[in-house]
Amino acid sequence: MASVLVAGGAALGEGPGGAQDGPETVLRAYVQATLSTNDSAAAATVTCREPNLTSMQDWQLDLSQRRQRFALPALAADVTSYQSVATGRRVNATADVAVTLMTNGQPQERVTRPFRFTLVSENGWKVCGAAPTE
């Protein structure tokens, strides 16, 4: 299996998704942990106490099932076109989530979906909500 971007494994305050990181970095860490690596422990470190992330979790499940059923190659996920508005301890953001099929480390096919995200400050920024915008 090819290498993919990895955002998991960092302790709070270290690396992507740490306690000192801004909302965009935390969102990238969440998306990569959820869609690229299926690392629920890493995703949990950047998720708020009471999240509403069903749409991302459903997409992750769909991607996992397709990868198994069709023997698809590795996935790399990223956030593009990030825009946000901060209001105190809350950030409302829009971004495109791009998932790229990888074979031998080379991109093969890319799917992009627009999402609306909510991030809150809970001992560092945490992803709290996600919903597709189309």
Rank of each mutant, 00 (worst) to 15 (best):
L75V: 06
E109S: 14
Q60N: 12
L119I: 10
A42Q: 03
P73Y: 06
V111W: 11
R69F: 06
E14G: 06
D58H: 11
R110C: 09
A71P: 01
R113M: 10
V85E: 13
A76E: 14
E134P: 06
S64V: 07
T54Q: 10
S55E: 14
G9D: 02
T100Y: 02
T47L: 12
Q20G: 11
F70I: 04
A19N: 11
V120H: 07
S55D: 12
T100W: 00
R66C: 10
N123V: 13
G13S: 09
R69K: 15
D78E: 13
L119W: 04
S36A: 06
V26K: 02
R66F: 08
A77L: 04
W59H: 13
A11M: 10
A43K: 01
T80Y: 06
L119A: 03
A41D: 13
P51G: 02
P23L: 07
T112L: 12
D62A: 11
A43T: 05
P114V: 07
C48S: 15
A44R: 15
V26H: 05
L119E: 05
N38Q: 13
A11Y: 07
T100K: 01
A77E: 00
C128N: 02
T47C: 07
G105Y: 05
L119T: 04
Y82E: 05
G124R: 05
Q60E: 15
A74T: 04
G8K: 02
A41W: 14
P16M: 12
C48A: 09
Q57V: 08
L5P: 05
T112N: 09
L63Y: 04
Q60F: 09
E109R: 10
G22H: 11
Q83A: 14
T118L: 14
R113T: 14
Q32A: 11
T133N: 07
L63A: 02
T87W: 08
E14T: 13
T54V: 08
G105W: 01
V31R: 00
K126F: 07
M102I: 05
P51S: 09
Q65H: 10
V26F: 01
T133V: 07
P23A: 12
P73E: 03
G8Y: 00
V127L: 15
A74G: 08
F115R: 04
A7N: 03
T118M: 12
M1I: 15
Q57M: 13
Q57A: 15
A2W: 00
V4T: 13
L75A: 05
Q20V: 11
A95G: 02
A2P: 11
R28D: 08
V120I: 14
V111M: 14
A71R: 02
V99K: 03
V97R: 01
A2C: 13
T80E: 12
Q20I: 09
T37L: 04
T103W: 03
G13A: 10
E24N: 10
S3K: 13
T25K: 15
D58S: 09
N92Q: 14
Q20T: 11
W125E: 03
V97M: 02
A29E: 04
L61D: 14
E50R: 14
C48H: 09
V79N: 00
A74N: 02
L72E: 03
R113S: 12
P132D: 10
Q60I: 10
G105R: 06
T25F: 13
K126C: 02
T87K: 12
A10N: 15
T25A: 15
A2Q: 04
S121V: 04
L72A: 06
Q83H: 13
S64T: 09
V111N: 14
E122C: 04
Q20L: 12
L53D: 03
